[in-house]
Design a protein around this nucleic acid. Structure first.
Lengths: 327, 327
DNA sequence: ATGAAAGCGCTAACAA
DNA sequence: TTGTTAGCGCTTTCAT
């Protein structure tokens, strides 16, 4: 920068002012500086700028997801894209950080506190999450996608998993099914637990715990496993609510393998409205999850906090039922 | 840090030495410093450290992919995970950066040159890519996943797309098909162009340009479109090589819609061995792409460069044919 | 083994 | 409008 100043015949201070919006810089100085920058091939050093400004203009997006799921979950990619777009418009650089091992988690917490990042979006946190703890204790501007119970009063953007689960289960019941089961995944996550709660709500007194099979992940494989178990326990089942589209796809496979038709013998509904839903045969009735908007809203929340606005910490988005042919 | 030094009764220099490996620090000093760090709640500032060290211990992974594909391509996620693992082992923080709009590209190039990142992995670059140009002119340690023609002598890790395409086409021909076509996607990318070249190689003199339909993206939708066009132009087609599993899945859908059976009427093969392949019905014969290893090797390459080793810039990985039931 | 001091490249407060 | 200067928080000679 000192070179630029010399070439332009001005002081470093003036160059700095030019670089930061150009107020209080005369036209003469401006053109001289522009020429000098060109000649010298000047590239500002962001580390230095970050140091003095205490800002990096970068925001992290943490994906804390087991291996297999990240690969398989189209929602995450949409969230990412939505967040990136919002950050981009505000001229922030989004950096997606993956927490895949405990070593990752440890390094990440250090990284986050290092001042190289101004704020953070957390996707798919689980209750009791080490990263969550680190972040809340760091008081870094943050926004969660989803709403784990233990984030205190941190900002979050979520959908009404429970209400939506209730809605779609009722809709399924309305097709005349009397033995409706559920493949309930990821009960260690708010979304998973809430979807189950909504299912129970909808069934009311006719709820039968026998008809719920719990599996660990929102995955195709677990859906298949869960459905098989359900089929074995309650062969008279005629409707299934799967915790996610991937789970539903797995369930449909198990159903097919067992010789049941969908929606003839068994009606199936999912959750997410991800690319899985249309890939199913028949296309899946499901709950539309506005993944890109979730990402976008989370980004906007962090941006707002960065601007000093800490109100409106809870955003809830609509997630309507999308009825197709699987039930 | 000055606080820590005071509490421990030593100088900042000693604290710094402790922080950086602890050589030339007495046991007394060490314990005093450790206690002081604890008491003060000291967190090192990475921006300051980056400034003086000219190193951030962070590496970028750039995904330059149109919106839709990123969401749909399971390979990218695997590459990411593989790279992250290798970086993690070396105590580097991986930051995934998305280039989704031209605005992104512009911001990214600035970001990369800012010194906040020590090196970079580039996934799915296209020929003439603005980011590629920026990186090569920046001489930032870099490694490409795939091998665009215009990266000069930059490091890359790739598979032999052409050879593998040749192999699987021959294998398909060996099932007795005589009118083999191809849905060729992404010809603007090295992988796409090479797969087509391999197809042409395999067919030799019996190659008929009429039987190739070119589509822009490695996507399910384009696969469906491409297959429909092929079917219309050459109704006697009895074998198809699709540029990717997603394309193959789309093609199978089009085939089904046209009343053709797979593999009875038409044999279909894909490329990638992604989660699409097993989701197809029947399961897809395809080329296994070692996505996680590609990511891992790219990471190792950048790491090597960071350590001053600039040899071995070209890594090639095996990608065997996996034969299933779709042909 | 340790302390003092000189920067890393930049911004911002102050004076002019 | 501009130049001067004092840091931002850390590492790293160079003495000691």
């Amino acid at each position: 920068m000192i070179d630029v100043a010399e070439h332009a015949g001005v002081s470093r201070g003036t160059v700095s002012r030019y670089l930061n919006g150009g107020r209080y810089v005369s036209d003469d100085a401006r053109t001289a500086i522009e020429a000098a920058i060109e000649r010298v091939g000047f590239i500002p050093n962001r580390a230095a700028r970050s140091l003095v400004m205490q800002r990096s203009q970068a925001i992290g997006l943490i994906v804390h997801e087991p291996h297999s799921l990240f690969v398989q979950d189209p929602n995450i990619a949409s969230i990412l894209l939505g967040a990136n777009e919002a950050m981009s418009e505000a001229d922030y650089q989004m950096a997606c950080l993956i927490a895949d091992s405990s070593r990752d988690v440890e390094r990440l917490t250090k990284f986050l506190s290092g001042g190289l990042i101004d704020g953070v979006i957390i996707v798919s946190a689980r209750e009791g999450d080490a990263i969550t703890k680190a972040i809340t204790s760091l008081d870094l501007p943050a926004a969660f996608v989803g709403h784990p119970r233990d984030i205190g009063d941190a900002a979050f953007v979520a959908i009404d998993n429970r209400g939506a689960a209730r809605d779609i289960t009722r809709r399924l019941a309305a097709t005349g099914r009397s033995r409706i089961g559920m493949v309930a995944a990821a009960l260690d996550r708010d979304s998973g637990a809430d979807r189950l709660a909504g299912f129970v709500d909808a069934l009311g007194t006719s709820f039968d715990p026998q008809l719920v099979e719990s599996v660990p992940l929102y995955s195709h494989a677990d859906g298949e496993r869960g459905m098989r178990a359900l089929l074995e326990r309650c062969p008279d089942i005629d409707g299934v609510f799967a915790s996610s589209d991937a789970v539903a796809a797995g369930a449909m496979e198990a159903l097919r393998a067992a010789g049941r038709t969908v929606p003839g013998d068994v009606g199936v509904v999912g959750f997410d409205d991800s690319s899985w839903a249309l890939r199913c045969d028949p296309p899946l009735s499901t709950v539309h999850q506005p993944a890109a908007e979730l990402g976008r809203e989370a980004a906007l929340s962090v941006l707002r906090q960065l601007a000093g606005d800490f109100s409106a910490q809870a955003v809830r988005l609509e997630c309507p039922v999308v009825w197709r042919d699987s039930a």
